[in-house]
Amino acid sequence: MKLEIKDYCVRCGMCEDIYPDLFHLNVPEDRVDIKFDEIPPELEEKALGAIADCAVGAIFKK
């Protein structure tokens, strides 16, 4: 499973707060970095959680 983040993401960093093993709020670059190109199977459930929890629905399965 691959993830992508749309440009309208508001960089609130909540995805990192809840799923630190998947996301990192890169403040200097002002964007959210996804820690894996391909999401490891054991983290897929968390990825789906992030898609549901995102404040503006900017996280999608690529």
């Binding site: 309208y8 508001v10 609130c12 909540m14 809840i18 549901a52 929890d53 995102c54 404040a55 503006v56 629905g57």
Partner: peptide, 17 residues
């Protein structure tokens, strides 16, 4: 009313844009 675990004002701003 926000989305997921987020806060409503982020949605208001997105919808305004």
């Amino acid at each position: 009313i926000g989305r997921g675990k987020g806060h409503g004002s982020a949605i208001v701003a997105l919808q305004s844009r």
